[in-house]
């Protein structure tokens, strides 16, 4: 039998590493351009820095749908009829490393690289 003390040390190590990685992931630099995928297909790309007026659009998947709200600098799933509502609970997405995912409707909103991004870095 392995002593409880050793288990505590092993678990604490995993805990520390995963906590550190989580913090790093959520503080990674943000990108301006986000892409919306449904079922693995690219639906549209939006440059969040160029959104003038807030607008919404619907993404249908089978019988269900996700309603997406776009504002300047941020995007979110404002309504969905999926079972877990994980995508709605995510709240606003600002282009970070952790994508918005709606697993039941196979919807993904994630930041993507664009040539415009490099241009912004040079001028800005």
């Amino acid at each position: 039998m392995i002593k409880t003390k050793i288990w505590v040390i092993v678990i604490s190590l995993i805990l520390t590493v995963s906590a550190a990685l989580s913090v790093i992931i959520f503080t990674l630099p943000k990108k301006n351009v986000v892409a919306i995928y449904s079922d693995g297909e690219l639906l549209r790309e939006i440059d969040l820095s160029e959104v003038a007026e807030p607008y919404t659009f619907k993404v249908e998947h089978g019988d269900g749908f996700n309603e997406i709200l776009v504002e300047r600098g941020r995007i979110r799933v404002s309504f969905a009829d999926c079972p877990d509502r994980c995508c709605v609970n995510y709240g606003w997405y600002y282009g970070g490393a952790s994508p918005v995912v709606c697993i039941p409707h196979k919807l993904v909103i994630k930041a993507v690289n664009s040539q415009k991004d490099d241009f912004d870095v040079v001028t800005g």
Partner: peptide
């Protein structure tokens, strides 16, 4: 299922919550 490799980024968070 979703063919999105970016989901792997949630692994540390899931491990943390799992502990």
């Amino acid at each position: 299922v979703s063919a999105t490799a970016e989901i792997f980024i949630y692994l540390p968070v899931l491990i943390l919550c799992g502990i």
